[in-house]
Design a protein around this nucleic acid. Structure first.
Lengths: 175, 175
DNA sequence: CTCAATGTAAAACGATCGTTTTACATGCGT
DNA sequence: ACGCATGTAAAACGATCGTTTTACATTGAG
């Protein structure tokens, strides 16, 4: 299905760069070089398309990101932004734009957040030898904060967050 | 100007809860209990109204927030969310929804970010005796990250971020 | 008393929204 | 060769968008 990839890629790019509500289906149809009939046949409707964009982003993000060590986690984030541009977290933005009122979208956002917190919790166990909810929350905050603050402070924030997160983990390192 | 306050309050509440683009002027007029004629006489147009909402939010946020110590900073954030609800940073959301394409809005967002980073830089100088760009970026990341992550993890993230930020500052405390 | 300012209520503006439909072309399996 | 699925191009749908306008009420100052 080349068409599905074409559609998803155009939708992700437009939604990410210009916002969900600000991106009309007309502009999307034009940019994807498809007819509206085909778009609606493949995507159903705009909300479902947004949900599929988030699902695809979810898959691609966790495929890219290395959760094996704290250093690798933040290095992956820096690489992601170097390749994709720094516009903050698409999941948070989707939730905010829709007020959490569209179930299909809220579900994708929740799934992303669930996996992100789980992976960080696992990372903490792996690096310190025990679960530590507060440490996991701190790394999560640094991760989210680097994602947001980098939009106006640049990549230096990611490096700063990485340094901080590694210090936290090392201070509790497996003896 | 009771009308200005009425209008600004309704606009801030609707924009914050439901998003900027998802909030139509019709709904806003209804909720503010004003005529559309009066709204446009006072606000000019929707973009200017959004900009004024951000300017008012900016004023109110820095009026509320205590930048005198790191602990106080994060405590202020927790209080803000306890009073206003946890929906993430309105400035970041405004910038994301508009793609940075509306100058009046981009300017207000930039002004907020400028003051936030300045205040944190000053806080670092005050608590450690010297400027430290990386430390300031770390506190900024923790602050932004707590704001974002609290939307789905709750207030515990703010407490975790506060603990982390205070450790960072204490490790570099004035000798 | 009058005039100008300021407000409301409601209709109307053209534009654009998300979505469906009509009409037609193409290719593929039986 | 036929029929059906799948695509395009484009018109049309009602709804809603941001904004302006028309018609009228209230009020405070000169």
């Amino acid at each position: 299905m080349d068409i599905d990839q074409q559609l998803l890629a155009a939708a992700e790019r437009l939604f990410d760069r210009n916002g969900f509500n600000a991106t009309g289906m007309g502009k999307l149809v034009r940019e994807a070089r498809l007819s509206s009939r085909t778009v609606y046949k493949h995507a159903g409707n705009k909300n479902a398309l947004m949900a599929r964009v988030l699902a695809e982003r979810h898959r691609r993000f966790f495929e890219h990101t290395d959760f094996s060590t704290t250093t690798a986690l933040f290095d992956s984030l820096a690489e992601w932004f170097a390749a994709e541009g720094i516009r903050g977290c698409l999941f948070f933005r989707a939730e905010a734009e829709t007020g959490g009122d569209i179930p299909e979208i809220a579900a994708e956002v929740a799934a992303y957040h669930r996996e992100l917190t789980e992976r960080i919790a696992d990372l903490v166990v792996r690096e310190t030898g025990q679960a530590d909810a507060q440490l996991a929350d701190q790394i999560l905050a640094l991760f989210e904060g680097a994602t947001t603050a980098a939009t106006y402070r640049g990549a230096a924030v990611i490096e700063a967050a990485r340094t901080c997160a590694c210090q936290l983990v090392n201070a509790r390192a497996r003896p």
